[in-house]
């Protein structure tokens, strides 16, 4: 196969272009852009509570939820999970996670295998609550892809809002296969 490619490949005249960041936003504009795009992509945002308990709104959400698995020690859930058997997560209502970083341009949150505990948690749960440290928001995808997380670990997803489909007559429906809702809280535990 490689021999066939070598035989046929056109002359290598194109040089590999240098990459640029195309960044223009001031640091204090990142959060606003992230919020705008997250909303556009169907994600929800909840505001942190007043000091000292910035995580109070998350606690309230967990209290009202059914079976909850949490990867954030400060926000415990009510179900310990079996890492060897992902299918056992089929009845989880809410998963609580902390993102590695976020992307303003797209409203995405980055979740690595280590953030998910079990990769399937991010897809079998009905809903996600994701904590994002505002200091980790990068402006765009060029900056996102210069982060080291892409060279480390076996899995990373840029998740943007909930699962969506418009495959039937263009009508948008959330929760086609993965999570039905994604809520972001801009706060550190």
């Amino acid at each position: 196969m490689l021999a066939a490619i070598r035989r046929n490949r056109p002359a290598a005249t194109t040089v590999l272009p240098e990459l640029q960041s195309f960044a223009t936003l001031p640091p204090d504009g990142l959060q606003a852009e992230f919020r705008r795009r997250l909303a556009q992509m169907g994600g929800k945002l909840i505001e942190p509570g007043p000091e000292p308990d910035r995580l109070a709104p998350a606690r309230r959400m967990i209290a009202e939820a059914g079976i909850t698995c949490s990867m954030v020690p400060q926000l415990p859930g009510n179900r310990a999970f079996d890492r060897a058997e992902p299918a056992s997560l089929h009845d989880v209502d809410l998963a609580v996670l902390q993102a590695s970083f976020a992307v303003a341009e797209t409203g995405s949150v980055a979740l690595r295998a280590a953030d998910l505990g079990v990769n399937a948690l991010g897809y079998l749960a009905q809903r996600l609550l994701v904590l994002v440290d505002p200091a980790t928001i990068v402006e765009n995808l060029h900056l996102a892809y210069s982060r080291p997380e892409f060279h480390d670990g076996h899995y990373l997803v840029l998740q943007t809002g909930p699962s969506a489909t418009a495959d039937i007559e263009g009508v948008l429906i959330h929760g086609a296969q993965g999570v039905r809702a994604l809520t972001v809280l801009l706060a550190i535990p």
Partner: peptide, 9 residues
């Protein structure tokens, strides 16, 4: 701006 899921395996 992006697909809901951009996954890197």
């Amino acid at each position: 701006p992006i697909t809901q899921y951009t996954s890197h395996f």
